[in-house]
Design a protein around this nucleic acid. Structure first.
Lengths: 107, 107
DNA sequence: CCGATCAATAGCCATAGGGTTATCAATCGC
DNA sequence: GCGATTGATAACCCTATGGCTATTGATCGG
């Protein structure tokens, strides 16, 4: 069972899928048709990508008649932000340790 | 030709590879042997992952005798941080637009 | 109603890539 | 110098997955 970070990174790793997400972030809600038009791949491919994005919690879908509108769910990026700052934190604390060590050696 | 974001996301998408990077962030410089011991995969697999991490700029290698020490290069995460805050920015600005619109409608 | 449009699904193919074992190159200890 | 250790490379296998076409289901317009 893959964890949240796995899902997020894997989902955003594909260029065309990430492009779809970026477009939804930039331009807001879009229909599948509109997204397909500029994606460079077929409509089924877009639908599949949107499915993956939805399962990752990165997009929401809203049905209206026969068309489906998708929109970005920005909150889903939180774990990613947490992860990066955690990594930065580890680095920082090790740096602090080193600094402490050097300071103590200096005395 | 994949761009920086592609490389970063793809590189970090694999769980075992990301685990290696996390470990280097947490515990600092490590030899291939030490990393292999706790990775759950074979030494060649670890070497391959480290190669990918190195090409992505996420780690540095330092040769000392017959062993190679790897360490995390935290600066390489910058594009990832930029990307997330850019996405957040797009969302925010669209929200502001909406807010403006509502405010103007209210008058 | 009936044809047309929209999106999802099914089924298939080709490739990328992560895993393995075997081997090689280089360095170490004795 | 020689066996042992360390890590990188080679060669292979197998699966995951992103792409396609074809089809279906649902809704719209006339």
């Amino acid at each position: 069972m893959p964890n949240t970070h796995d899902v997020l990174f894997r989902t955003l790793a594909d260029p065309t899928r990430r492009a779809l997400f970026e477009r939804l972030c930039r331009e807001g809600e879009q229909t599948v048709g509109a997204l397909t038009a500029q994606s460079g791949v077929s409509q089924p491919a877009v639908s599949k990508h949107l499915g993956v994005l939805r399962q990752a919690g990165l997009v929401r879908d809203r049905h209206e008649g026969r068309q489906t509108h998708y929109s970005a769910q920005l909150g889903a990026l939180a774990p990613l932000i947490d992860w990066t700052s955690q990594m930065a934190g580890f680095w920082q604390s090790r740096f602090d340790d080193l600094e402490d060590l050097l300071k103590r050696m200096d005395q």
